[in-house]
Nucleic acid binder design. Structure first.
Ligand SMILES: NC(=O)c1ccc[n+]([C@@H]2O[C@H](COP(=O)([O-])OP(=O)(O)OC[C@H]3O[C@@H](n4cnc5c(N)ncnc54)[C@H](O)[C@@H]3O)[C@@H](O)[C@H]2O)c1
Ligand SMILES: NC(=O)c1ccc[n+]([C@@H]2O[C@H](COP(=O)([O-])OP(=O)(O)OC[C@H]3O[C@@H](n4cnc5c(N)ncnc54)[C@H](O)[C@@H]3O)[C@@H](O)[C@H]2O)c1
Lengths: 253, 253
DNA sequence: AGCCGCTTGTGAAGACACGCACAAAGTTGC
DNA sequence: GCAACTTTGTGCGTGTCTTCACAAGCGGCT
């Protein structure tokens, strides 16, 4: 393959070979395939073709096969994939064979819903620790787990071998909570608060931003509107195609 | 991880096609910039440089400037951007000047949290309609909004000019609910159920898949483990580029 | 006025992701 | 055992996103 020119780039690169790095985008899809495989297994299916699995998960079959090829999967040509082994291989690749232990901080509206959700435990992500700062919440039980005070984060996280933290506190509290989780050894964080968390390099943060999701949808609503109007006008308006639309279509701005 | 990007764009006349398409990835970031601008405005700031805004939102300054350039923004060289006008321009570009009306279907654990969340209304996305199929829930009020029966979707969505639908029902019910929303004229849907929704081309679906988010984190946990072990044998792994923050929520799929 | 330092806006190159298309490899039927 | 058929695994062209790097523009200072 193209020998990467490997420009000096500021800092020397780790050179560490991520010898067979799985593209980030593929990892996300692999997780989806895995869930679907579990569903299929429950329904008693034994094999599945890339075509079937692709349709069920809404992706392109070729892309799916390429994704699977990253984990060195072995399907059978002419047949497809045996569900059980493939599932097992995916679980291994995704780090799902040793169940992860999840801690959730902030048992408010959203946190409550997450803590009470059975679906996570079912897929290997048991929430094993809950934290809040509100004295009215500390001590209550959700799904059998007692809510602890945030000051207990270090002790409890160590005891329960927490590897993943979920932050569902208000924005202003998020960074502080994050710092506590990090110093308790948690190196993977899922953040629901609308703030950018500052973390050391070895910690990974994923952010779920629902307001942004809505805004993206709103953008497309607006775009559709503009397009609809534009084409209506185009039909009735002066026949001359002056010049299509300037910039954002005149309507906008 | 983001929603099914879009219609694969078939043969349809792309007449209006990509007029001046803003890259999907940029739209997501623009939404983040907008929120940060609001925050800055509240704090009384008047101008901001790309550098500052970039740090605050966790992106690369050059990328930020390019993002802004898509909406034809005008900053002042040597100074930066005036917050008020930039904010206004962003709101316009993102379709946020006319408040969108949001309907939420499925007032269970998660739906309840979403319905009760004040943050959406504050950013221009008032939830104006709630639906559920459970007779015990129909009729109750959340944040002043009465929960209606799902069979009322067509009427209520039309009356309240709903443009965005949120699905927070169990997986098996999602497709049915989706169909009802679509036939009620809703063309933008945010889906929390772990299923792939089937929709006509003109409807956009974004999927928020929390289980997948956890799985992605678990993958990196596993990878770090492997690397740690590997480098123990090898030399001082030195640098090892950690990956970190993934900027925005490009949520899954 | 003219210079200087700062910051924007963008061209161009690289990195990444996607999906087609096809050879290889297996299965089934005769 | 062979031919026909099915489905995988992947090389490669294409398009999108990211990032660098720098000229151009602007304000302030002398
Ligand atoms: N609820 C939603 O639908 C929704 C939607 C989008 C984003 N969010 C974001 O998710 C986060 C949580 O939202 P919410 O509606 O559940 O808020 P909430 O106010 O209902 O709950 C926040 C919880 O965090 C606790 N908390 C506050 N400071 C804390 C600290 N320092 N340490 C530990 N716990 C602390 C509070 O006691 C409370 O229980 C917020 O950042 C919000 O912006 C929520
Ligand atoms: N709660 C979480 O933290 C969480 C996390 C990840 C994913 N999810 C997903 O979000 C969705 C909702 O989760 P939840 O925990 O709120 O579930 P839930 O069971 O608490 O709530 C589901 C609600 O949908 C209603 N409903 C069922 N069928 C319906 C129909 N046909 N029309 C309208 N309403 C209907 C039910 O009456 C109930 O109120 C599920 O698909 C779940 O997989 C939830």
């Amino acid at each position: 393959m193209t020998a990467p020119p490997d420009p000096a780039q500021g800092p020397a690169e780790g050179a560490t070979a991520t010898r067979r790095a799985i593209p980030e985008a593929s990892v996300a899809r692999l997780a989806v395939y895995l869930r679907m495989l579990r569903e299929l297994a429950e329904q008693g299916a034994e094999t599945v073709s890339s075509e079937e699995l692709a349709v069920a998960t809404g992706v392109n079959p070729a892309k799916l096969r390429k994704d699977l090829s990253y984990i060195g999967s072995y399907g059978t040509r002419g047949v497809g994939y045996e569900i059980a082994p493939l599932r097992h291989q995916l679980e291994e690749a995704l780090g799902q064979n040793h169940a992860q232990s999840v801690a959730l901080v902030g048992v408010g509206n959203l946190g409550h819903a997450l803590a009470g959700y059975g679906g996570f435990a079912g897929t290997g992500f048991p929430v094993t620790a809950l934290f809040d700062i509100d004295p009215d919440l500390v001590g209550i039980r959700i799904n059998g787990i007692v809510v602890e005070h945030v000051r207990e984060i270090p002790r409890v996280c160590a005891e329960r071998k927490v590897t993943i933290g979920i932050i569902a506190t208000p924005g202003p509290a998020a960074q502080g909570v994050c710092d506590q989780l990090v110093s308790a050894g948690v190196r993977s964080i899922l953040n629901f608060a609308p703030v950018v968390l500052q973390v050391p390099d070895e910690v990974e943060v994923r952010k779920v931003d629902l307001a942004v999701e809505l805004q993206i949808l709103a953008f497309h609503v607006a775009r559709r509107h503009l397009e609809a109007n534009a084409s209506t006008e185009a039909n009735t308006g002066a026949g001359v195609n002056g010049h299509t639309v300037n910039g954002t279509g005149g309507l906008l701005q």
